[in-house]
């Protein structure tokens, strides 16, 4: 039941990104909801426990955005690895600075995701693999900074919704056991 819920969350987040958020914001760019989910899951459970969810999110995004399957999976896996590293060291030690550390994590994750996607795209393009999808947002584009701003704005919303869903799932599991 929990796994199905998570899959639906990923599925509808992808639809939100493609069909809603880029329309609502007049820049034509919305927050990267799936990336925010990766950040949430990895900071809560760690890299290994969140790996399957991150891979699923990457796969769904690859399918939905016509990228070669593997591009977003690899990018999310790399981003999650570094988030796991940061969160293990800083989110535990600096409890009073949690919000600041999370903001830095979001900025770093958005930049890293764009960097990894651009690198993968350039490498694939160099080897003549043209059927890999459209080029991601350029690292030197102002759109990237807008995406960072939107991600920071939306993360609290994603955080609270996911926390609520998790507590409901926990209660349902406890009720089932009882």
């Amino acid at each position: 039941m929990v796994k199905i819920t998570i899959f639906f969350i990923i599925f509808f987040s992808a639809i939100l990104q493609l069909a809603v958020l880029s329309n609502v914001f007049f820049w034509g760019l919305g927050p990267n909801i799936l990336l925010l989910l990766i950040i949430f899951w990895t900071t809560q459970a760690g890299f290994e426990k969140a790996l399957v969810k991150n891979i699923t999110a990457g796969l769904v995004l690859d399918l939905a955005t016509f990228c070669a399957v593997g591009m977003n999976i690899a990018s999310f896996a790399l981003v999650a690895f570094f988030i796991g590293f940061i969160s293990k060291r800083f989110l535990v030690i600096a409890r009073n600075w949690r919000i600041f550390v999370l903001t830095i994590t979001i900025i770093f994750s958005t930049l890293a995701n764009s960097l990894f996607l651009n690198a993968l795209f350039l490498i694939a393009d160099y080897f003549g693999k043209t059927a890999i999808g459209n080029a991601p947002t350029s690292l030197f584009s102002f759109m990237l900074f807008k995406e960072i701003g939107l991600n920071i704005l939306f993360f609290p919303l994603v955080y609270f919704i996911m926390k609520r869903i998790e507590s409901l799932s926990f209660l349902a599991t406890r009720a089932k056991i009882n």
Partner: peptide, 15 residues
């Protein structure tokens, strides 16, 4: 392992 599988998917069978 994840990166190797992804590289295989991207470079040998894009779509």
């Amino acid at each position: 392992i994840v990166l190797i599988v992804c590289a295989f998917l991207i470079f040998f069978n894009p779509k």
